[in-house]
């Protein structure tokens, strides 16, 4: 079990605010930090890793106290057994794929490196430098490197945001496999609702100042609807036509057009919506 509470003054587009969180994460679960940009998701991940110091806080991981501001306890970042996958991958440019993974190990174990290279499909690329790899390949190396550290906690900061749909699905499967096979508690920062539905057992919603434990992803995203068929989409365009509005949405990789009454809420490009069907009529709800 991970007990984490912290207060930290942050600066967002709308001004200064104090992030206040008090959460418990069950051991071995894959959970998501979800919320708009600038609400403190990455900062929270960095505070857990020890890369950012909270104004005050408490962090206990599997019975070990990593941070206790009241008792002035703060375990240095290099003593916290975490695997951190950065948004920009942060691979060492001077090392090959194999050397990147070897570097993460406490004691050099070539056999384990070989296993990781095989699991992540990196065998052929093992002697290449990161600059010669594609985004998806770099992401796999970053994950393999984080696992090689044998972490108690895997922290993933929007790791799939820059990848295409196919690569994203493939790495999502690998993430699920890692969580299942190795049982490492994993925190995933993500904006992608489908990704959270597919991977996570629990969602923590960041709402500006506070963080709420919403339980299963379904509780957060579809609590207000009873439609049986439903998708999460994003508004690309909203055109007013007399008494109706024509919304162009993208669901997965497919653009669709949906007609909604003009009186039904305001939509802007970029809005996330839930599309459901009830008695053959499409229902759109802004998320």
């Amino acid at each position: 079990m991970i007990e984490f509470s912290a207060r930290k003054k942050l600066l967002s587009n709308s001004g200064e605010f104090t992030l206040s969180l008090d959460i418990s994460i069950p051991e071995g679960e894959l959970v998501a930090f979800f919320g708009a940009s600038g609400t403190g998701k990455t900062t929270s991940l960095r505070m857990i890793a020890g890369l950012t110091t909270p104004d005050c806080g408490y962090l206990q991981v599997n019975g070990n106290v990593w941070l206790d501001s009241a008792k002035k306890v703060q375990l240095p970042v290099n003593q916290r057994p975490v695997g951190f996958v950065f948004q920009n991958y942060a691979l060492f440019p001077n090392m090959t794929v194999r050397e990147n993974i070897l570097f993460a190990q406490k004691e050099k174990k070539e056999k384990e490196v070989q296993t990781l290279l095989e699991v992540f499909g990196l065998e052929v690329l093992q002697h290449r430098k990161p600059s010669l790899l594609s985004g998806g390949q770099q992401q796999r190396v970053a994950l393999a490197r984080a696992i090689a550290r044998k972490p108690q906690l895997l922290l993933l900061d929007e790791p799939l945001s820059a990848l295409d749909m196919e690569t994203r699905t493939s790495i999502q499967n690998e993430l699920r496999m890692i969580n299942r096979e190795w049982g490492i508690t994993t925190i995933l920062v993500s904006h992608d609702i489908s990704e959270i539905f597919r991977l996570c057992s629990r969602v923590y919603s960041f709402n500006g100042n506070t963080v709420e434990d919403k339980g299963a992803p379904a509780n957060l995203f579809n609590s207000r609807l009873s439609g049986k068929v439903q998708f999460v989409g994003e508004v690309l365009e909203c055109v007013q036509e007399d008494i109706v509005r024509i919304l162009t949405l993208v669901v997965g990789n497919t653009p669709v057009k949906v007609v909604v009454p003009a009186t039904e809420g305001d939509y802007a490009p970029g809005d996330k919506v839930l599309i459901a069907s009830k008695a053959f009529n499409p229902i759109i709800r802004k998320l």
Binding site: F84, F86, A90
Partner: peptide, 27 residues
């Protein structure tokens, strides 16, 4: 130099001296 590679090395449990010799100086 990208600062996240130094942070990445620290999250991998490396000491400041190892980070200097293996990550910062080569880069």
């Amino acid at each position: 130099m990208d600062e996240t590679i130094v942070e990445a090395a620290a999250t991998l449990g490396k000491s400041p001296m190892t980070i200097l010799l293996r990550v910062i100086l080569p880069n």
